[in-house]
Amino acid sequence: MEFDTSKILLREAVCEVLMELAKEDPSIVVLDADLMNASGLSRFAKEFPGRAFNCGIQESNMVGVAGGLSAMGYVPLVHSFAAFAARRTTDQVFLAGVYGHHNLKILGTDPGACGTSNGGSHMALEDIGIMRSMAGVTVVDFTDEAMVRSVLPQIMKTPGVCYIRLFRKTKRKVYPDGTQFTLGKAYTARNGKDVAILAEGAVMVPEALKAAALLEEQGISARVVDLFTIKPLDVQAVVKAAKETGAVLTAENHNIYNGLGSAVAEVLAEQGIGVPFARVGFQDTVGETADMDYIMKKFGLDYQTIAAKAKELVRLK
């Protein structure tokens, strides 16, 4: 299965959507922390020079400035690598975002395994956990270009704090152009009846689909549900998948603690759904410098591991 067939990188799709929105909505502004060339927002800055601010390498101040801009009626989107956009600015996101009821969009690029050559220091394996534990924060991980085009406008038009994870330098294409998604609603990427793989993001949704194809060869029908909105989680979709398939495997580009797997486990426990359940993700470890294939295999995020775990869950039913 080939997923890298998009014509543009995901970061280019994000920038294009922001520029389209900014033409109509003068309140949209972007801020970056000396990573405008990495985020691709330099293009936005050229198009809207008075509405893009390169703050330098100071993520904490950047988030605070964004809070102040929000108080003046602007809709700021701030960018840094996920490691710094989330880990380094946690208290700022709280006070200058959540507590002040500000309208703040945080773009964290290259979460988890996407850190590759930047290595373990740059691998955010905690960002979903940090953000989803803060009151009212929406957490999204984009899967592909079609999703960016459909969901990013919804995010920018929804007041409040939203944390967006983005694999910036990928041409992942999972869904047909023009596919419509709804913020907060899961999307069934593949139907199946024996086990449900609940996955998030441009790294793990394609991997889950590859695993489902492998399982099919082995006579197992796996459903793949894209939980791109990690918070608020689509509780009904989780319940439906669990009840209809009888086995749930989560797949996340994140530590297994406090991420998608934890969020799904909370739903299953609260709903009293005692189906076989397991989590694929970083197993409470830090990352390291390597290429993507190596990282996926070493940390057990690859489709073979997903398929093996899914098969085991089916056996336990």
Binding site: F53, S60, N61, M62, V63, G64, V65, A66, G67, G68, L69, S70, A71, M72, G73, Y74, P76, D91, Q92, L95, A96, G100
Partner: peptide, 14 residues
């Protein structure tokens, strides 16, 4: 420390 940045953001918006 945070009010400093928030004020700078307000001033920018003004």
């Amino acid at each position: 420390g945070q009010g400093a940045s928030l004020a700078a953001g307000i001033a920018l918006g003004m």
